[in-house]
Structure formats: C-alpha cells, structure tokens
Design a protein around this nucleic acid. Structure first.
Lengths: 238, 238
DNA sequence: CGACTACTTGAACAAAATCAAATGGGGTGG
DNA sequence: CCACCCCATTTGATTTTGTTCAAGTAGTCG
C-alpha cells in the first residue's frame, strides 16, 4: 500500500540555513546574541518527500522552522480518513505551542516535497522566553496567526461550497502576489483538494466550474479574467 | 426578521463576580496583588439573550471573562451564512489573543443565554504580561487550548459525517461528566446543529440515526446504552 | 385558549463522494 | 530517440449525504 521508508537524516546547519532562519518573521528580529544562543547547537533535518517529521500525540521536545521545501500538517482519524490542516513553507515555525506548553502534538507533520528544517530545542526556547518578553510577544503573535487561519478554515468549511472555497483560495494566492491576475497552483492538485476538504475528483470539477467564471486553466497555471467576478462567486456563490 | 434591540448594560462587579474570575483557570492562580491590579477598576457587562458583545473585524480594546451564561463565537459570510465556531461558558476568556496582539477580532461574540461577563482592559493585561512571565505562559496555554479545539473542529468537519460528529460530541459530553451514561444537551438543538456544521433538520435526523446505535432520547436528555458502540460509530461510521 | 417557537418529518433537490474508466504527461530503460 | 509504464488528473455514471422547502407536532408562555 504505502512504502514505509521515511527518508530522514540529520546534518549540521550551513550558513545558508542560518540566513534562512534569520529571514523568518519569528526569529528574524532577535538580537544576534540571543539568536546564537538559541540556534548554535542545533542541527538541521533533511527530509525526503513524504517523510514524517512528527506524529500526532507525541510529545514535542523540539520545534521546527522550515528552511526549504513544503510540509503538511495532517490529522488522521481512526477510520484512516485524513484531513489536511495546513501546508507550510520556508520561514514557518511548527509545533511551537505544543513545544512551549508541553502538550502532545495536535497534528502529524510530513514533507510534501524534499524539505530542510531547522530544529529548536524547546527547553532552550522556554528559557529564552522567560528572559525575553519580546520573544513571548512574538510567540503569541505566531499563535494568533495560526488561530485566525484555523478560524477562517472552519468558516470556509461550514459556510462555503467546494467551488467557492477554491475560488477563495485562488484569490488568496493572487493577493499574495500583489493582485496578480495569473497565479500558479503551489502544489499537487490532490493536496490542494485535501486542504480544501474535497476529493481530487471534486476538485477537478470545481476547477471546471470556475472556467465559467472567467478563470482559464492550463496545467497548473491559472489566469483570472475578472477578479471582481471571481470574488463575487467566492462570496455569494454561482 | 431579527429584532435589532441588543440589551446590554454595564454594572460594577459584585463579590460573587470576583470569585467567579478567581475560579477561572487563567486568572485563578494569580497572586492577590496582581489580581487586584488587573481587575479592580473593571466593570461587568450584563447581556440579554442574543446581545452582541463584540463584532468581527473590530479592534478588541477589552477582553472578556464569562461569569455566567453562555456565549457563542460566530462568523458570518458575505452571503449571510453563519458558522458557529465555539460556545463558551463561565470561566472562559474571550478575545485574548486579539487583545494582546492588537489584531481585529476574528469572530463575533453573542450571548446565547442572558450572560454576565467581566471586562479586562488589554493595556493593563499587556503591562502585567511583561512583568509576569508566568502570566505569559498561562496566556500561551490558553491560546494552545483554543488552537487544539479548532484543529479538532477542522478534523471533524473534514473527515467525519454529520451523525459521527454528533456521536463524538455526545461522547465528549459524557466524558466531561466522568463517563456518565446519561447526558443532557447543553443548549438549544439549533445551536448544537450550527456548532456541528449542519442544519437543524439534519441534526434531527442525525439523532434518529443514533437511536439505532443504542442512544435513547427524550427531550434534551440522552441515555447511552453502550458507550463502546457509540464510540465505534463515531470513529468508524455506521 | 391561542400564538409563538422549537423541533420533527416528509419529499424533492443539490452537492459531493464513490466507483470505474479514460486521458495524458514525464521519466526510464532499451 | 522512442516505446512503455507509472501516476496524476480528468471525465462519466451512480450513490450517498445533506440541504431546502413545506407541512405538521408539541411544548411554552402570555
């Protein structure tokens, strides 16, 4: 069914890795000494596609910061139904609240593409946090971002149809690129389907529906003919 | 359609109110002086049923702690579809992360029953937080609880059918009462339906289905004949 | 008692999942 | 370079699930 090999290895951080962490919103603003004390003894995890980085229910003794590649947060029910909670790329921190609160992980993390992640010892992080109220605030900010993303996620699932959710996602992609009328789907369609809470088949049909709303599709490139129209479709339905 | 009057008034806190706040997980452990400095100048809000306490998108300059009654957190789409995010009772703090991060409220709060809420000035809270790293940690814990509730919410919506979600909810109610085989539905069925992401009609039919799983229903009282069986139904479907 | 509201039930309808079968690249080995 | 295979995606047919609309029941409060 699924090949068990989870290619995963550990490496010392390169200068480039350090720069990537410095580029993250969370740790980017840290003064140099604090930054060093947090990351100098840390190693980097190199994960092959589909490698599992953390499993639901385990205690998180480290956090991750994504350096390169993409990872997904998923939950799997007893009946093996799997729900994609989020997909994260470089700069994102993972398992922060779990690490800080000592609670078991609320999701499983797996690499979507080959990925590279910085590790961060939670004990060190907690110590730093106590001494540095700015870091506390930053961590709270990060949790707040997760919170509002999840709230939006729930709203979409409860109050929008599949095609409308897809439209909303495309609009987000467009906005993330300064309102570009052409956007590229950031990963495999199956995965997007999962993130939107539908099957690949439904996703495919949802795309077809958007063509009627002036979205042309070729491969993984989309062109939005009329952003306002697509927005209406997302908000008020077809 | 809907009567606009939103009965809402302000009162000075009673001793009982103060005791209720002391009973909350978040502020209960605060040393007395810190507790006083946070709450001594605060007032209490008395909300009639359906009163709106805070509206999505507004900046939160105060947080609330529920003293009595029930409130719901909802999101309403442009198309007037409304999604119930959570329902909270005494002891719960509301809009904490929004207040602390200064971001706009991610949900609207409305009273489900007549309710009484302590207010808390976010400026005071932020000041306290900087001086008190234990409070920081407690706030992070609170955010973490919200986070994992939302994650579970998303998982249920994506990976479980309506009746299974209802079963899971009933099991949670039962567990919250130490595994009691009889549980009472905590509020109006319409509202539960909304919280579970279905229509009142679907909710009604979902209950019918559970009867086939050994759940007897009369009024708002449920009796679970076989907890294991209900759990199987929730996890693996009918 | 009567009106209101919450809840239930039924029938028709819509949305999405499932099952099954094409289509169509991309990459590999010959 | 080409044939072939693998896998993602699409498409079609069907079934399941849940919503909508409409009507009916019941409990509550004046």
């Amino acid at each position: 069914m699924s090949q068990p090999p989870a290619p995963l290895s550990v490496a010392p951080p390169t200068d480039e890795d350090m720069l990537a962490v410095r580029g993250s919103t969370l740790f980017g603003r840290l003064p140099e000494p604090a930054f060093r004390s947090l990351f100098e003894a840390q190693s980097v995890v190199v994960a092959g596609k589909d490698a599992r980085l953390m499993t639901w229910g385990e205690r998180a003794d480290i956090c991750y910061i994504v350096l390169r590649g993409l990872v997904k947060l998923v939950r799997t029910t007893a009946a093996h139904e799997t729900a994609v909670l989020a997909i994260h790329g470089p700069g994102r921190a993972l398992m922060l609240t779990e690490g800080l609160t000592g609670k078991p992980c609320s999701a499983t993390i797996e690499a979507v593409t080959p990925a590279r992640l910085m590790t961060l010892d939670v004990v060190k992080l907690r110590r730093r946090m106590q001494e540095d109220s700015a870091l506390s605030r930053a961590l709270l900010m990060a949790a707040s971002v997760d919170l509002r993303q999840l709230v939006a996620h729930v709203e979409e699932l409860k109050a929008m149809t599949g095609p409308a959710r897809l439209a909303a996602m495309i609009l987000r992609l467009s906005e993330a690129q300064g309102g570009a009328r052409q956007v590229a789907l950031p990963y495999e369609k199956q995965l997007i389907a999962g993130r939107l809470g539908m099957t690949p088949e439904s996703f495919s049909r949802a795309i077809s529906q958007l063509k009627a709303q002036g979205v042309s599709v070729s491969r993984d490139k989309l062109v939005i003919a009329d952003v306002g129209r697509l927005r209406d479709f997302a908000h008020y339905g077809g």
